[in-house]
Amino acid sequence: MTRQQTLPEIADQRTLTDSIDDCDAADSVPKTQAALLDRAQTHAADVAAEHFPEFPVESIDWEVSERTQRQAGVTEYDPDTEAVTIRFTWDAYQEFGWIQFSKTVWHELVHAWQYWQFKEADHGETFAHWMDSFNIDQHCERFTSRLIATTISLITNTV
């Protein structure tokens, strides 16, 4: 599932601060994959506008995966087309909730910026700079998908 928005559409949406301020409100928590992508894009646009003003965040392709088992997010780069795709894991979002998951958005946005700026991304010096500035971890927190948790539970209970 890929959904791209234009920069004006992103700018018209609520800011991250607005989102966090009423995070307990029933309508502020993304309940669908499309809502999660909308929230992530808004969050990324806000961060980019402040910290990476020249970065064309609207050119990022955004996806949600239901198949990924252990990573909350990943940023992929196609050197032939220079396309950047950020893919999030639905199960990770459901396990973490928006406030914790928003750090994954920041983390992957830094990688997208690195690809745009340097044509490669890593957890080296430039990432470390943004880690401190954004208060994000070097590696996204791992999670256990429901499938793995169920399998472990079944094995544990039968032994």
Rank of each mutant, 00 (worst) to 15 (best):
M1R: 06
Q5K: 09
Q5N: 09
T6A: 05
P8I: 12
P8Y: 11
D12M: 10
T15A: 06
S19P: 04
D21P: 01
D21E: 05
D22K: 07
D24K: 08
D27K: 09
V29G: 14
A35V: 00
A35K: 03
R39A: 08
A40G: 00
A40I: 01
A44M: 13
D46G: 14
V47Q: 04
F55M: 13
F55C: 14
E58I: 02
S59G: 12
S59N: 08
S65R: 08
V74I: 05
Y77K: 03
D80V: 05
A83I: 10
A83P: 07
V84Q: 00
V84R: 05
F88K: 04
Q94K: 07
E95L: 10
F96L: 05
S102P: 01
S102F: 00
K103A: 14
E108T: 06
A112S: 09
A112T: 05
W113A: 06
Y115D: 07
W116F: 04
F118C: 07
K119R: 15
K119W: 07
A121P: 04
A121H: 01
E125S: 09
F127Q: 02
F127C: 11
H129S: 11
H129P: 08
S133D: 12
S133F: 08
F134N: 00
F134M: 03
D137C: 10
H139P: 02
H139T: 10
C140V: 12
S145F: 02
L147A: 15
L147Q: 15
T151W: 09
T156R: 05
N157D: 11
